[in-house]
């Protein structure tokens, strides 16, 4: 039987597509340490010129919000429409604003 403690840990891979863009989640690899994780990320996720920079981090280190808390976490933002520029009506003739 497989022994989970002997399996290579899972890492999450983030790729920067090109200069100026932020890193974006691409997928995962298994690796024993950060160096190997970077190598595996390179060999798995950048074979088609997908990136110019890589981040890897152990999947176990990711802290995620609980889907059950989605209401209190995200819904209160829904009525804060005044945070968006389209909320404000400015006459057509006024420019540079």
């Amino acid at each position: 039987m497989s022994d989970p403690s002997k399996e290579w840990p899972l890492w999450e891979v983030f790729v920067r597509g090109k200069g100026g863009l932020s890193h974006r989640h691409a997928g995962s690899v298994h690796a024993v340490d950060a160096k190997m994780a970077l190598e595996h990320a390179r060999d798995t996720y950048t074979r088609r010129m997908e990136g110019v920079s890589l981040w890897v981090l152990p999947s176990a280190q990711i802290v995620a919000s609980d889907p059950g808390d989605a209401g209190p976490l995200f819904e209160p933002a829904e009525d804060k429409v005044y945070r968006h520029p389209t909320f404000y009506k400015i006459p057509d003739g006024i420019t540079h604003i």
Binding site: S2, P4, E7, L10, G27, S28, V29, H30, T44
Partner: peptide, 17 residues
């Protein structure tokens, strides 16, 4: 295969299993 194993692993089954 690697992408798909990883996707399946999010449901709590390891690649070794």
């Amino acid at each position: 295969g690697l992408y798909l194993y990883a996707a399946a692993e999010t449901l709590g089954t390891s690649r070794d299993e």
